[in-house]
Design a protein around this nucleic acid. Structure first.
Length: 585
DNA sequence: CCGTCCCCTG
DNA sequence: CAGGGGACGG
């Protein structure tokens, strides 16, 4: 037990990067400001939360296959504007199916839908090769389906065609043998689903039996095939199971290999920080045992133990193992993949398409971070909507209700789709509030013009502007109250040297701030903020300990100092209307 | 006088 | 976090 350690620690405890924010260098002004002790981390590791990927990945594929197969059995009512062909089949499954797809698909791009283009020869690792195999499987399935149809078609036609409204809405009715093979793959498959799903009702018994049997076989075979393919993906060349925790083999070269602890369970032991590659400090995960400052009854924490000797500012490691910008891009890419919607997609919008999508033959189709499929009852041609904000997409975007924050609760609409740049918001929504809070890590005193620049989806007027200004005022209020509180506590704990007060990620003060501005640890707090917070704390400490707090306006000078320490906000905040919650659920 | 900011309150 | 009052600067 080392009560001091959490608050006081050498600055180079975690190898960090120079003061880069969002992958771009700071202006000279900020460089000098950050130096020598402000080092910021690219928001990162929280984005590559392993839990988001592993199981989802498999489940998504499974669900995909199931969906395809299920589609054969479904009523076609959802596929065309026509009403249900028979009165006795209530609208049962298609809704449920739609939901299922929605749930299972949006998390990341699905190789099955990645598009037919080449790359079958298998690139590096499993991805491309598997994609190719899956594509093959799908083609085979299509061929089988066509065979089935050809087999049953003549007899079925003799039974009499379906009524017109069973077919209308699709360019060639289920019974029209003129399948348009030039159609996009997705559309093609949709028509097949429709095709098959109408089959049983009109087929003679023999054909139906044949169809059923073939379906059964197909189902089994495909599931098996997919399983085997997936197994190959999940086993690396050396035969070891890759960690299903969700580490990517590709884009995240330095992903931590230790799974994140379950929600709410803090790490028992501090990470072996020295052993971690780089910026490996898990965001906000603090060892509960080493909290300080918030426990006033603890025995004296300052007079310090050797470990927490203040900062003889240690320069950062000169050899930063990874280039910053690429890592940043990778993280955005990952984020997009993980989120499946929201800012991930938007963030990607700023990236060169190819560089961030290493193995996508057709990135605009394959990368669907905004989860277009989620918005579609059936996977229609993604080609129609290559970019999130085309009109076709926008029509489908659920709008976020412009309501006020529900205390403590997440907005129901927020996980649907938190923003739309084209839908200028009338008011501010909880997403905006959250974004503002994250921005507070960079700027305590934003100007209204800055706010306008960083909330492009907000229609600013006097009221909105003042509300947002007010938000930051409230943020500051909380911030300064915390600073004063902890400064006074440090004084009462016997601290004499303000330089001893350094806020680290495992300190209680950090936890308080993080809880306030970054609830849920969605964002990795930049080190610049920690440095400024430390400085603020020190200023409060100095002022209080020298008795300046007798002056009614004793905080003013501190405010003045801090107001000059705003950092530039990463560009990603500008381009995304909302950085999205990086839910771990 | 107006816009900000702070502070207090609910 | 929002509202409202008051201080302050231009």
């Amino acid at each position: 037990m080392d009560p001091n350690s959490s608050l006081l620690l050498g600055p180079a405890q975690y190898p960090t990067e120079p003061c880069m924010e969002g992958g771009r260098s700071l202006s000279p002004r900020e460089q000098s400001r950050c130096s020598p002790f402000a080092w910021s981390q690219v928001p990162s590791s929280s984005f590559s939360d392993p839990d988001c990927f592993g199981d989802e990945h498999i489940q998504a594929k499974r669900a995909r296959v199931e969906t395809i197969v299920q589609g054969m059995f479904l009523s076609p009512t959802s596929l065309g504007p026509g009403r249900a062909p028979t009165g006795d089949s209530p609208s049962r499954p298609e809704k449920a199916q739609g939901r299922k797809r929605k749930q299972s698909l949006p998390m990341q791009q699905d190789p099955l839908e990645a598009g037919p283009a080449g790359n079958r020869g298998g690139g590096r690792k499993g991805g491309p090769r598997v994609r190719g195999q899956l594509h093959l499987l799908r083609q085979q399935m299509r061929h089988l389906q066509q065979r089935i149809l050809r087999a049953v078609e003549p007899r079925a036609a003799a039974q009499g065609p379906p009524t017109a409204d069973q077919r209308n809405g699709s360019r060639s009715g289920p019974w029209g043998a003129d399948s348009d093979h030039s159609q996009g793959v997705e559309k093609h498959r949709v028509s097949e689903v429709q095709y098959l799903s109408e089959g049983p009702r009109f087929l003679p018994a023999g054909a139906r039996a044949l169809l059923e049997s073939l379906k059964k076989e197909l189902t089994g075979a495909i599931s098996q095939a997919v399983d085997s393919v997936l197994q190959k993906v999940l086993v690396d060349p050396s035969g070891h199971l890759t960690q299903l925790g969700g580490r990517f083999q590709g884009p995240v070269p330095d992903g931590r290999s230790e799974p994140l602890p379950p929600e709410g369970s803090a790490r028992k032991d501090p990470l072996p920080l020295a052993a971690l590659p780089r910026r490996a400090q898990p965001p906000g995960e603090a060892p509960l045992g080493s909290l300080s400052l918030a426990k006033p009854l603890d025995s004296p924490r300052y007079p310090v133990s050797p470990r927490m000797i203040p900062k003889p500012y240690q320069p950062p490691p000169a050899d930063c193992p990874l280039a910053v910008a690429p890592a940043h891009i990778q993280e955005e890419w990952i984020l997009g993949q993980l989120l499946g919607h929201g800012p991930g997609g938007r963030w990607r919008g700023d990236l060169p398409q190819d560089s961030s999508a290493p193995s996508q033959p057709s990135s605009k189709v394959a990368l669907r971070p905004w989860g277009a499929a989620k918005l579609r009852p059936l996977a229609l041609g993604q080609q129609q909507c290559p970019w999130p904000f085309t009109s076709t997409c926008l029509e489908r975007l659920p709008l976020v209700s412009p309501v006020k924050m529900e205390p403590g609760g997440r907005q129901a609409g927020m996980d649907a789709l938190p923003f739309s740049a084209a839908h200028i918001q009338e008011g501010l929504n909880p997403g905006h509030l959250k974004k503002a809070k994250l921005m507070f890590f960079f700027t305590r005193y934003p100007s209204s013009s800055l706010l306008k620049a960083y909330f492009p989806d907000v229609q600013f007027n006097r009221c909105i502007t003042s509300q947002m200004i007010k938000w930051f005022s409230n943020f500051r209020e909380f911030y300064y109250i915390q600073m004063e509180k902890f400064a006074r506590q440090a004084i009462s704990d016997g601290v004499t040297n303000p330089k001893m007060l350094v806020i680290l990620r495992d300190s209680e003060l950090f936890r308080a701030l993080n809880m306030h501005y970054n609830k849920g640890n969605d964002f990795e707090v930049p080190d610049c903020f920690l440095e400024i917070a430390s400085l603020t704390l020190q200023e409060f400490f100095k002022a209080v300990s020298s008795g300046k707090d007798a002056d009614p306006s004793w905080k003013k000078p501190i405010y003045k100092i801090i107001s000059k320490l705003d950092s530039d906000i990463p560009e990603i905040f500008k381009s995304s209307s909302y950085p999205q919650e990086l839910f771990r659920n």
